[in-house]
Design a protein around this nucleic acid. Structure first.
Lengths: 150, 150
DNA sequence: CAACATTTAATGTTATAACATATATTGTGG
DNA sequence: CCACAATATATGTTATAACATTAAATGTTG
């Protein structure tokens, strides 16, 4: 029996496309739980971690809330309050934008940069998590997933 | 610029494995939002929908809570209350198991079966969502994802 | 068979997600 | 330049996720 069918004990799928939907959801759950475990010690959720990485990518430029919404991997609509929580933790700063006062400039703080750098081991961790795939195979999935989303 | 990099506007990834982690999370978000949209009209969450499908797969046998936890795609620990909510909607039934009174037998109701059958169009919907991939390519991702999880 | 460990599920609590709506600011057509 | 649409963010609310703990039943071992 193919692997996924075995893991979720489903007899069979109607077709490869239906299996793919389930496989993406299942693989996400698998991956997500690994991230959770790594981030828990540092009291960050995966969304918060991703926002910090976006902000670091922009650093020293600021980002707006809508930019965060666009780029967040999970597209939660609740970016404002997610930023609130990061501000409480002193990992980011917020200023209203003088050019357009509707906007809010969000940027990562020094403390945020330090916190992130302590988490950079995670990228290496995933080399271990993904050890079953050769670089070439990983590249294969990547290009197929990109193609999938069209 | 490759597709994912463009979508989340990231300059580049350290390697294909790191990109893969991000790509899985991103693709999940993309897929999840499509499911949400399809399920919203019927006031079901994706977790609830998946549990109903597991129960239908077992029907007419009953499932225990721990079986649901095992098979659920997102492995939420909160299966008890998820079942509570489905019972409130009269989509499933619950009985304590006489053989082992710790256990709870959960099974899908007639109403649940009817509700699910109205949602079977979703599988076809995903043929459209996945139209960019040939059957063979879908199969390729499937086997690579299976291999990934080891 | 009694004490203790293990399994199974439920519950309490807090944080976050999802959805709708509100508020403030800016852009725009007449 | 004023009314109105559009944009950017914030807020209120409800449902659900995540985590820890508890409770009940069964297994196990001396």
């Amino acid at each position: 029996m193919p692997k996924l069918e075995e893991e979720i004990n489903q007899k069979k799928f109607k077709n490869e496309h239906q299996k793919l939907a389930v496989n993406i959801l299942y693989t996400h759950g698998w991956l997500f739980s690994k991230y959770l475990k790594l981030l828990k010690k540092h009291s960050l959720t995966l969304s918060q971690y991703n926002v910090l990485r976006i902000l670091r990518g922009q650093h020293p430029k600021a980002s707006t809330i809508s930019l965060l919404k666009e780029r967040m991997l999970d597209k939660t609509p609740d970016a404002s309050r997610l930023v609130d929580r990061l501000i409480e933790k002193k990992l980011v700063k917020r200023n209203t934008c003088s050019a357009d006062r509707r906007r809010v400039d969000v940027s990562i703080s020094q403390q945020g940069l330090r916190a992130l750098s302590k988490l950079d081991f995670i990228d290496d961790e995933f080399k271990v998590v993904f050890k079953n795939l050769k670089q070439k195979e990983a590249k294969g999935i990547n290009s197929l997933l990109d193609k999938l989303r069209g």
